[in-house]
Write a protein that binds this DNA or RNA. Sequence first.
DNA 1: CATGAATGAGGTTTCATTCAT
DNA 2: TATGAATGAAACCTCATTCAT
Lengths: 184, 184, 184, 184
Amino acid sequence: MRTRDLILEEALKLFSEKGIKETTIRDIAKAVGITEGAIYRHFESKDQIVYELFDTYSSQLYEKMERAIKRGKDTEEKFRNMVMSFLDFAFKNPDAFRYLNLFHYLRGKEVKKFKHIPFLLLKDFILNMDREGLLRIEPEYALAMVTGTLERVFLYKNMGILKGRQDEVKKKTAELLWKSLTKC
Amino acid sequence: MRTRDLILEEALKLFSEKGIKETTIRDIAKAVGITEGAIYRHFESKDQIVYELFDTYSSQLYEKMERAIKRGKDTEEKFRNMVMSFLDFAFKNPDAFRYLNLFHYLRGKEVKKFKHIPFLLLKDFILNMDREGLLRIEPEYALAMVTGTLERVFLYKNMGILKGRQDEVKKKTAELLWKSLTKC
Amino acid sequence: MRTRDLILEEALKLFSEKGIKETTIRDIAKAVGITEGAIYRHFESKDQIVYELFDTYSSQLYEKMERAIKRGKDTEEKFRNMVMSFLDFAFKNPDAFRYLNLFHYLRGKEVKKFKHIPFLLLKDFILNMDREGLLRIEPEYALAMVTGTLERVFLYKNMGILKGRQDEVKKKTAELLWKSLTKC
Amino acid sequence: MRTRDLILEEALKLFSEKGIKETTIRDIAKAVGITEGAIYRHFESKDQIVYELFDTYSSQLYEKMERAIKRGKDTEEKFRNMVMSFLDFAFKNPDAFRYLNLFHYLRGKEVKKFKHIPFLLLKDFILNMDREGLLRIEPEYALAMVTGTLERVFLYKNMGILKGRQDEVKKKTAELLWKSLTKC
DNA sequence: CATGAATGAGGTTTCATTCAT
DNA sequence: TATGAATGAAACCTCATTCAT
């Protein structure tokens, strides 16, 4: 069953580099070192690969964030842990993270088939912060700021615009977001 | 020469809705009410349409931001004007804005063929703020926060997550970003 | 729109000779003298060709039989006319007739999408003969005998087993069936 | 050697239900509960399965009819026995019978490889009836009527159009055909 | 300027068959 | 004998682009 994983691995790489439509089954097969037909012994269709990759990694990120939140003593620590685990996942799985981001601009309704959407976890957390009276801005703006900043921090780190060690970046981003969101 | 503009108009709509690869020349022709062949009277290729749309709207946004900056008396007003003009463009041309965003995750090098990249204007502005000693965070982080937040504010407004009048949203976002970036 | 008809014509020929699954789009394209892609300007799919051919020719046969029945003065003449028009169609459109027969053994429920099924006309006619007290055998057996004999007469005529002029064959078959069905 | 028979059994079922081309080696393997490769331990190719099934069942039907004929005292009883044994086979082996019928409209020359073709037996019998002066119609028409009616009686019985016990149907059909063929 | 049929390359998928285990 | 992954050819279909009209 090694081949199946190889297919997923190479598909993820290619999808995140070139886009889903731009990646052909032949591209994937070539990357794995098999023929096109062989892929269909492991997956029913290209769509299934697309789906499975999304499901796997969004669940993975979701659970990582969930665990990170639980590890925190108070809301601030929970928030920082969550942000840092988010970036940790992105830095360790850049392809997967880029891949997950492909779905922001493409779908919407179809995403509801999936078990765990990290975005929803983040949203709940921030709504909770609001209920606790911690936010100095409306929660929707806070959400936009957190998700947007996190995505860009990853992007700019990967593009070389943002320098420094990963640990440092994670810490600084958590710090910066917490301060921006909460009453000074 | 009206047809040419109609083609661009419909192509923009379709590209931003379904994606570039997912939109066929036939789709565009049908939307305009002409046939496939006719498109090639006006454009050499599909790529040319893609290119021209990007060029047009990135220039438009760039110049709008440029003018907004000039209208400000001091750095704070310049910043607020820039942010607000950015969102103004996005709200008034949602298709164009979504379209421009398609290029963040797909290309990179190829973007260098274009005259005016709004991102570069923003970047320069923030570097300048840093030089003036206004930032309380490193400029790369500031850049990530501004670009990310702006994109998400637009996205969430369009998805209905973020409510309120456009004017209000623009003002609030400018306010929030300025406060987050600068020393309290 | 000539090409569209040519495609139908050649598809009919090939389907009736080799079978539907055994005939490829490429076979049809080659027979017409165009490329495979061109077929899809005229038809959405292979299935649509299959469907349209069935619809066209089953309607045609149905209506031909309907007119033939109307031309008869009494039941006997109506019956003979119907049988003869059935064979007339088969002899003049052997491919179409063979093609229609392909569906006896393949489908069943799906056939209900079609407007005019010759079989149903025949069935009604024979049930009517029964109500008039003309049959010496149960109507279901009469139906089996008529449909079965007609199909085989066509088949054997085409295979050369059954000799003689078409007109003769039509008349003899009508005679033979009428006598077999009715009280001597 | 049980597996070999199971393969034939399931292949027959699938072929007669869905058609030969429409049935894959994988379908057969799954139905038997083995894998694709295993089939090739027992058969050289799919074609061999197709061939062997035809050979087996056409011989079986042929011999059954032969024995039935021998059991009759005079021509009428021989004829009735033959017809009834034919239907008996069809009712007891509907898949096999449907399968044999697939070959009427598909092949022609290739059928000559086979030892025993029931059709030829029937043909000889009827030519003999003609020589004995028993037929009131030309033998080719008689042949068409017999083969056609038999096939349809089976078909309509299976489809539920023709009701009644199998024994009854067999007897009635034999009666009806004998009367239709011979001088009253 | 416009039509729309046609091309040709390439995409996804299917499937009989082979082969290492 | 059996497995099941892999092959390779071929099937259906798509689509940017060309071209005669």
